[in-house]
Structure formats: C-alpha cells, structure tokens
Nucleic acid binder design. Structure first.
Lengths: 215, 215
DNA sequence: TTTATACTATTGGTTCAACCAAATGCAGGC
DNA sequence: GCCTGCATTTGGTTGAACCAATAGTATAAA
C-alpha cells in the first residue's frame, strides 16, 4: 500500500512538470482526494509531507498553495533525476571540501573501509565491481560531509542501480590504477582535514573519469 | 489553532534535545496522540511533516523511527541554518563560474532584471525585500548555469518559502550596500564570460553575508 | 454611485470510531 | 533447539461530522 507516499510523489510530479506552478492554488482537498481516488485524510498526509519539505503551504479558509521558491528545481528527487555529466565536476569537489572539514572519526574509518574494494576491483579487473565500489566511496564522502541537502544532490547524480555504471569504468588498466590513486589522494586530504586539496583531488578524479570514459 | 505545526515542533525538539536519538523507535502513534492531548489523525499529520523532511521514517507494523542520517544536527532549524551556511560557500562559486561560461543572452537579460530589485530594496531599507531579491537573483544565477542538478542543489540551500529569510539580511546599511555592489560585480563578470572572477565574487558575496549576518 | 456591513459558501483544521495490513512475539509442536 | 501458526502490536486507510478562518456576495447606508 503506502498510498500517502505515492500521492505525494504524484503531486510533486505535477509541480516539477510545471502543471502546478509557484503561487498557484491547488484544487480543494476534498476534490483532490476524489481525483486521486483516496480519502481526504490520506490526501492530507501526503500534502503534509510536501508541506514539511517547504514545497506546499496552506492557509485555513483560503487554500493550499505551491510555495514561491518551490518550482521545478526544488522538487527534484533522486528517482526523477537523470544523470548529467556536467553536474558532478562542480558538485563533488564542493562535497569533498565539506567532508574534509567535518568528517567524524567514524566517517573516516568508513571511508577507509570503502576505499579498499576499489583497489581490489582494480587488481581483479572487475569493471562492474570497480564502478560499484567507486559510487559507494562517493556516497561515503557525501555522508562524511554531514549535509543532507548536498548528499541528496550528489546522490541524484550517481548511477543508481543499473543506470550508467559504465560512466565509472575506465578504458585501460593504467587508467583504473590512476583513478584509484586519485581517490586515495582524496582520502588522504580528507584525513588531514584539508578542504582545498580535497576539492582539487575530487576535480582531478572527475576529470580522469571524463577523459577515460568509454564513448 | 494550527496544532499540527505545534506538535511537529514539539517532536522536533525532543529529537534535537537528544531525548529521541537516531535509530530510536518513537512511542506508538496512539500513545503519542494521547500524550500530546491530540487526536491520532492530527498527530499523524505532524509526523508526516517530519517524514517529508527526512527526519522520521515509519514501517507499518513495526513503528516510527528517527532516521539515522537525521539526528540531532539535521532536525533543528538552527542546525539547518548551519548546513545552508557551510554549503553555500562551496556551491555558489561553482555555480557562478558555470553561469559565466554558459549563460544565454536571455539569461543575462533576466539577471539584469533580477539585480535591480536588490538595489531598490537597499535604497528603501526593506530587509524582507532585500532577502527575497537576493535569493531570486541567486536562482537566476543557477538558471543561467543551465544545470538542473546544480540548480536543485543550490535551491536546497536557499531559504525556501518561510524558512530562514534572515540569512540574507545584513546588519547595517553600509553592509547592504556592499552586498549589492558585490552582486553587481558578479553580474559584470558573468556578462564578460569570466568564470574565475565570477567564482571569486560569489565567494566574496557569501563571505560578506557570513560576516554581517545577525547572530 | 460608492462604501461599509453582514451573511453565506468555500476551504483547510480537527476529531472520532472503526477497520485493514504488515511486523512482531509468543506458545505449541516437531 | 528449531520451526510453525496464531494473537498482539503498530502503522495505514476510511468516512463522516464538526470547527475555524477566509473570500465572495448581497444588502444597506452614505
């Protein structure tokens, strides 16, 4: 079941697609409930979820409105987003720098643990494992940055599930090696709490991926 | 009335104070409703608001839990403020640089149009307008960068709707002036297609905000 | 005609009582 | 000791009814 979650994403989609725009007033709750074929109570729980995210606002006696700041951009969820090559080069260094500033000791340990499989996959020559290990490591970086908003944004750019693992597989053995080395340097900068080098290594890493990526 | 909002903030406070910690299971809805002296339905709408913000999660038949990633730090408005503050210094310059590279003629015109209200608000001394005009201009920058993911990431760091407009209001008249001047320089760099100066001015701008922000 | 007031319909907010569905825990049987 | 099956717990959903704030309209006064 879980209708409330489903209804919330349906409404979110209407806003993201521009059908309902900022400042627009939504149809009355009673009618929305009927349109979606759900009870008014359930419809309301869905509205409250979007309310909690600042996407919707309500005024008793007036109506429910799309918040001014909550247009297409604000309603992005990871399942709705497509992978974009030019997002990572800017976002990852920012996240890496933040991670270097704020990573907790536990997060650092976790990162150490996550880097190992990358090296193992390089040695074994397993492309799929290599890609999976990299994305896991990047998620660890995001976790270390301890910022839910940035983590969500980065997550939306990473290959999710079966989508685009090939973006993280290089062409040659040597390139695999240098990708691993670059991530290792990144981790070193994070461990030494050096934001700028961390951002720089992150940028190098992305540049490497883009250069060696299969066409 | 508006009980739901009140209950949500009460629960939020319990998490912020550490009474309920990440991975903890909250008391059953029926009992919580009684404790707060409110109907179960209203209690549920409050839970959904926090659910929408990623602070709580529910499993049917099991219970309602404080999300691991959204512990003490993530759930409080004050801490969200910090998240925004330390996310922007990294992200905005990156977006500005991209905007300088890629802004279309139309986007440039739009930016000109968006900068004017900032200056007007400074002259008029209207803090609320000043904050709104700045965030609108920043959204324009994100739009000019022509990258939905980065726009979404930046959007998540901006004051959305009723949240945190005070972030963008400085303390003194002179600071208002210099904030405006900085944005004007940023727009100039964007217009001249100079990514590095644009990033630099963006960084200056954020630094200004952080220095002059009300405590 | 214009303005002010009162009323009514609309719309979100709250409550209640009942039932459904998934997960949990315990008792009994192997 | 382990597994099965049932009863309990707990979140999910429904429908109806009523409260409270707003908005629009009709009416009355200037």
């Amino acid at each position: 079941m879980e209708k409330q979650q489903h209804i919330a994403s349906l409404i979110e989609e209407k806003i993201r697609s521009g059908k309902w725009q900022p400042h627009d007033r939504l149809p009355p709750e009673r009618q929305l409930a009927e349109d979606f074929g759900v009870s008014r109570n359930t419809l309301r729980t869905a509205l409250r979820m979007l309310h909690g995210r600042g996407i919707l606002g309500s005024r008793q006696g007036s109506g429910t409105y799309v918040e001014p700041a909550s247009g297409t951009a604000a309603c992005t969820t990871r399942q709705n987003l497509f992978y974009r090559l030019d997002g990572l080069p800017h976002l990852l260094p920012a996240v890496a720098a933040l991670c270097a500033q704020r990573a907790s000791p536990q997060a650092l340990l976790e990162l150490e643990r996550l880097l190992t499989p990358v090296g193992v996959a390089v040695q074994a020559g397993l492309a799929a494992d290599f890609a999976a290990a990299q994305t896991a490591f990047l998620r660890g970086i995001a976790h270390g940055a301890d910022n839910p908003q940035l983590a969500a944004a980065l997550e939306s750019l990473l290959p999710s599930g079966r989508y685009f693992p090939e973006l993280f597989t290089a062409r040659t053995e040597a390139e695999h090696e240098s990708v691993f080395a670059c991530l290792a340097r990144l981790l070193g900068a994070v461990r030494r709490k050096e934001p700028e080098p961390a951002a720089s290594y992150a940028a190098d890493y992305i540049a490497l991926l883009l250069r060696s990526r299969r066409p």
